[in-house]
Structure formats: C-alpha cells, structure tokens
C-alpha cells in the first residue's frame, strides 16, 4: 500500500548464498529435474522427525534386551531399519560398544558423515575443522574439553565415518538405572553419548 510507511519498502533481500540456492532450485525445477514438494518433505523430515531420539531408542532397547544388543553389535543395519531408521543414502550402520576397557568416539575426517537416521543432522562442532582434525590426533584432550572422564586405564578408539559406513556409539548403561524401563532409559541417552563425546546421564 502506498501510504503504508515501513522500514523496508520492499521485501528484504536474502543473503548471496540464499539467492544462489534459490537460483539452483529455479533452474532445476524449470528443467523438471527436481520436485519442490519433495524438497519440503526432506526438510520437514530432518527438522521434525529425525533426531537423536531415534538413536536413544535403539540404545535403550540394547540396554534392556541382551539378544537385541548382540544382534545390533553383529549387524546393526537391518535391525535399525526394522525400527524404521534407514539411511536415505544407503549407508551401512555400525554400532560400537563402550566398556570399562574401551571408549569409542566417532568422527568424519573427510567431511561430516554421520548416522543421520539415528541422530539427525550433525551439530556444528562435529562439522568443524577443529574437531575433524583433533579427534584423531588428540582424542583424550578433545574428550576432556567435552567434560568426559574415562575409567582409569580405558583405551580410546576413534572411528572414522565414511560415505558408506556410519558409526553409532553404544554408551555404557549408567549406575542406578537398573529398574528403569526403555522409555525412561532412552531419556538418559544424549546425542553426544552416541557420538562418544559424552556419557549417558546418570539418573537423578
């Protein structure tokens, strides 16, 4: 409306990269190479339906059911697929178990390969150059910065994810959780505990 004074007489111009993404979408849509509705669907899935709560359910079930845990450690991909968590990029899922002797930690030195179906989109620090470089070189120092104290004498194993293989850490079941059911256990499982940069919460 001409008499409606406003700080911005026209729509606010998005940033350069935002405009470039819009340009790509427009070109590909005009060529019939993409379906804009499918893009919205993908965003909705990753924003609202996929996240660490998926991985937490898998961990809680492994803590509660020894047979499931054994099968999960042997071949996780079909088991988590049965629970509805499968890789859109066709990756293979490998679960590594933390014990008193071995603490596992996951990185992707290449870029940011990550078990999306189980954890969602990786946090910023996982994608940073600093984490990608240091997790392999000085894992104990990185763990200390995350506030992780390991059992005395525990070895640290660092797993480097690739496009084909994504690792999930099965954290140790915390003390004081013996009587808890799967739903309550899942609430103890943090995202970082499944990357190996944290431990499961101890019940209050």
């Amino acid at each position: 409306m001409p008499h409606d004074h406003h700080d911005h007489p026209h729509a606010l111009l998005p940033s350069d990269p935002a405009l470039r993404v819009k340009a790509l979408e427009t070109i590909l849509t005009r060529k019939g190479l993409i379906d804009p509705a499918a893009l919205d669907e993908i965003i909705d899935t990753y924003q609202n339906r996929i996240g660490p709560q998926n991985g937490a359910r898998v961990v809680a079930r492994a803590w509660s059911d020894p047979d499931f845990k054994a099968a999960l450690l042997a071949d996780a991909t079909p088991l988590v697929a049965e629970m509805g968590y499968f890789g859109r990029q066709g990756e293979h899922m490998v679960v590594v178990e933390n014990t008193l002797q071995t603490h596992n930690m996951v990185v992707c030195t290449l870029c940011s390969c990550y078990p999306w179906p189980l954890l969602g989109i990786p946090p910023g620090w996982y994608k940073s150059d600093a984490y990608r470089a240091r997790a392999v070189r000085e894992p104990r120092k990185v763990l200390a910065e995350f506030g992780v104290t390991l059992p005395e004498g525990a070895a640290v194993r660092v797993w480097d994810s690739t496009a084909e293989i994504r690792y999930l850490v099965l954290p140790m079941r915390p003390e004081g959780s013996a009587d808890m059911d799967e739903a309550a256990l899942a609430a103890l499982v943090t995202r970082d505990s499944m990357i190996g940069t944290g431990l499961a919460r101890v019940p209050a």
């Binding site: 935002a18 993404v21 590909l28 893009l39 965003i43 990029q89």
Partner: peptide, 13 residues
C-alpha cells in the same frame, strides 16, 4: 538456506 541446499542435494542424490 542451509536446509534448502541440504534438501536439494539429498533430493538429487
């Protein structure tokens, strides 16, 4: 736009 470029890539894949 982070979400859009991500979705675009996943969709093309």
């Amino acid at each position: 736009w982070h979400a859009q470029v991500f979705a675009l890539t996943v969709h093309l894949n």
